[in-house]
Amino acid sequence: MIVCVCRRVSDQTIARCARSGMDFDDIQMEHGVATQCGKCESCARALWSECAPGLSVAHLQKHDEPFQSAALA
């Protein structure tokens, strides 16, 4: 999928760069992501943050019922 229409940069390109350790600023310099109209910046940054190594991302789930231990059930 093309993330940056102005510079024709795909999600695969952003993910590959992020996984290789590039900072978002480096991706902007090399590929021009979010340097023209800027409409893709939030999507591009979110994709980068998901794929960048060393950045822990918490995935939280909301449960409707309070947690009960199996021993209590």
Rank of each mutant, 00 (worst) to 15 (best):
A46H: 11
I14F: 00
A52S: 08
A73Q: 14
G21T: 03
S20H: 06
H31E: 05
F67W: 07
V9S: 00
P66Q: 08
D64L: 13
C51I: 03
V33E: 01
D26E: 14
C51N: 08
M1C: 13
A58R: 11
M29V: 15
H31C: 07
I27V: 03
G32L: 02
C51R: 07
T13M: 11
G32H: 01
V9A: 01
Q28H: 02
A18R: 00
A52R: 06
G21L: 02
K62Y: 15
F67R: 04
T35S: 06
Q68I: 09
K39W: 11
F24P: 01
Q61S: 15
P53L: 07
E41C: 07
S10D: 06
S69F: 11
P53N: 08
T35W: 02
V5W: 12
V57P: 03
R8W: 11
V5Q: 15
S69T: 09
W48N: 00
Q36S: 14
L55P: 04
A58K: 12
V5F: 14
P53M: 07
C40N: 01
S69Q: 14
Q12T: 09
Q12L: 11
L60F: 13
L47A: 01
R16E: 10
S10P: 02
S49E: 10
G54W: 04
I27A: 00
G32V: 03
M22I: 02
E30R: 12
V57I: 13
A34D: 00
H59D: 09
H31L: 05
E65C: 14
A15W: 03
H59N: 12
V57K: 12
R8F: 10
R16V: 09
L60N: 13
S56T: 15
E50I: 10
L47P: 01
K62N: 14
D25N: 05
R7H: 05
E30V: 13
E65G: 08
C51H: 07
K39N: 14
A15C: 08
Q36P: 09
M29G: 11
E50P: 03
T13Y: 03
D64H: 10
D25E: 11
T13A: 09
A73W: 09
D11G: 05
S49N: 12
E30N: 11
R16A: 08
E65L: 15
D25Y: 03
R8G: 06
F24Q: 01
C51M: 11
D26S: 15
E65P: 04
A15K: 04
C17T: 02
C6A: 10
M1H: 10
I27S: 00
D11K: 06
K39D: 12
A44V: 01
W48E: 00
L72A: 13
E65Q: 14
D11F: 02
R7N: 08
T35D: 04
H31V: 04
T35G: 04
A18E: 00
P53V: 07
A44H: 00
Q12N: 14
G54S: 06
D11I: 07
A18W: 00
D11N: 09
C51V: 06
H63I: 09
L47W: 00
V33K: 01
G21K: 04
D23C: 10
A71Q: 13
S49L: 12
S20M: 06
M22G: 03
